[in-house]
Design a binder for these strands. Structure first.
Length: 412
DNA sequence: TCTGGGGTCCTAGGACCC
DNA sequence: TCTGGGGTCCTAGGACCC
């Protein structure tokens, strides 16, 4: 049954964020590093070495050479000014003696499954937001509305810790996702913050606009240009002014956001919209001079993408490419096929067509291939109402693509 | 010696159809 | 011959997030 009151019904939403997740998982494996500045990132060429006497030797930041960036770091490393997305080479200038560990996504995914399973067991309404964070709808948890969610949140923190062998998380509990996401940052690590609408002026308005999920560097700069630095500044602004300068959609969102309004539901399941593979080269490559190397990389990306599609059970109808030039300019091209496919050769052929539409004078830094307009194999076999037309032949995986296949690529 | 890889959503113009 | 409007698909770019 639906009643008009439903939309306005008070909710209780949690945002759970694992503390320095990748770094914390590494500390479980290398407890001797606890308390030290540790940085995760940079690729795979700096594995720790176990010595004959059982001790371990680790790579130091100062020894790194390459184009990798920092994925995350321990709080001790952050104290040096090191932060995510910073180039490792640059970060090494700030913390040359910090330990550098390679990224091990398989291990982080394993711990991700562990903590999410623990949360699921207590509260089934969970929305995945990547490996290290989730939203949870606590509205229907018995007793939660009575204490603002404190008891269930503490139970969740305990469950996560027990399931992972000691990993901590921070939780924000508020009436919506927007506020909860902000609050999970408060009191990190191992934090718990409860907040209601009444707390917004005192606790949210003083925050820098950039702290809000959805206000990035560009928007923050533009807001600052209009004298708006804090969330409170935006809340005080005329909504018409915001719409005028930031567009109908984003302007209206800014106004609602600043007043702590957010009706987005917790979404427990969604199909992927696209799947992609991309790689940054060790050195910039030229379409003509490095034709063979580029062609081989292009082929491999298409094969990996086809493999991902097969493994996950999707076929694509829109194949796209992404290029990043040496000046960091990004260009994308895509092509919609007459029917869905998951065949590496068909994907490479389509990607090759896309490539022909790009001026390849400048050197390339990155190459990527993307599969969009996805359909599950079930949808292809039994088309839904507005049938995704295809034939069985196109859904059947075919032989692997070989670099020796003579395809018209990088024919600049 | 800056700046990874995998995503989502929005905008906007043109094609094409009714 | 002229005058509109709505809807969807395709493509390119960009902001933002983890």
């Amino acid at each position: 049954m639906y009643s008009l009151g439903d939309a306005a019904a008070a909710r209780l939403i949690a945002h759970l964020d694992m503390d320095a997740f990748y770094a914390s998982v590494e500390l479980l494996r290398y407890p001797d590093l606890r308390g030290q500045p540790v940085v995760i990132g940079g690729g795979r060429r700096h594995q720790p070495v176990t010595n004959a006497d059982g001790t371990r030797s680790y790579a130091r930041m100062r020894d790194y050479v390459g184009r990798g960036v920092i994925t995350t770091s321990t709080y001790e490393a952050r104290a040096y000014g090191v932060h995510s997305a910073m180039g490792v080479m640059k970060a090494a200038q700030l913390a040359p003696d910090a330990i550098l560990l390679p990224i091990d996504f398989d291990e982080y995914r394993r711990y991700s499954r562990l903590f999410k399973a623990a949360v699921h067991a207590l509260t089934p309404q969970v929305e995945d937001r990547g490996v290290d964070e989730i939203y949870i709808d606590l509205t229907d948890v018995p007793g939660a509305l009575a204490d603002g969610g404190r008891a269930i949140a503490m139970a969740l923190k305990r469950a996560v810790r027990d399931a992972t062998g000691g990993l901590t998380c921070s939780i924000g509990v508020t009436p919506n996702k927007l506020l909860s996401k902000i609050c999970s940052e408060f009191g990190k690590p191992d934090g718990l913050t409860l907040l209601t609408h009444a707390d917004i002026p005192a606790r949210i308005w003083p925050l820098a606009a950039r702290k809000v999920n959805g206000v990035g560097p560009k928007a923050a700069e533009k807001l600052a240009g209009h004298g708006m630095h804090t969330v409170g500044d935006i809340a005080a602004a005329d909504p018409m002014f915001l719409v005028e300068h930031f567009g109908k959609s984003y302007g209206a969102w800014l106004h609602a956001m600043a007043h702590g309004r957010d009706e987005r539901p917790v979404v427990t399941y969604s199909e992927p919209k696209s799947i992609s593979r991309e790689t940054t080269f060790d050195r910039d490559l030229h379409a003509v001079r490095d034709r063979a190397a580029l062609s081989a990389i292009f082929t491999e990306l298409c094969e990996q993408l086809a493999g991902d599609l097969l493994r996950k059970g999707y076929a694509t109808k829109t194949v796209g490419i992404k290029l990043r030039f040496d000046d960091f300019r990004i260009v994308t091209r895509d092509l919609t096929l007459p029917a869905h496919t998951m065949d590496a050769r068909a994907i490479r052929r389509a990607a090759g067509e896309c490539l022909k539409r790009v001026d390849l004078t400048k050197r390339l830094r990155l190459l990527g291939v993307r599969a969009g307009t996805l359909a599950t194999l079930a949808e292809l076999v039994a088309p839904p109402a507005h049938g995704v037309e295809t034939s069985a032949a196109e859904t059947r995986p075919q032989r692997a693509l070989h670099a020796s296949d003579n395809l018209p690529l990088f024919d600049a």
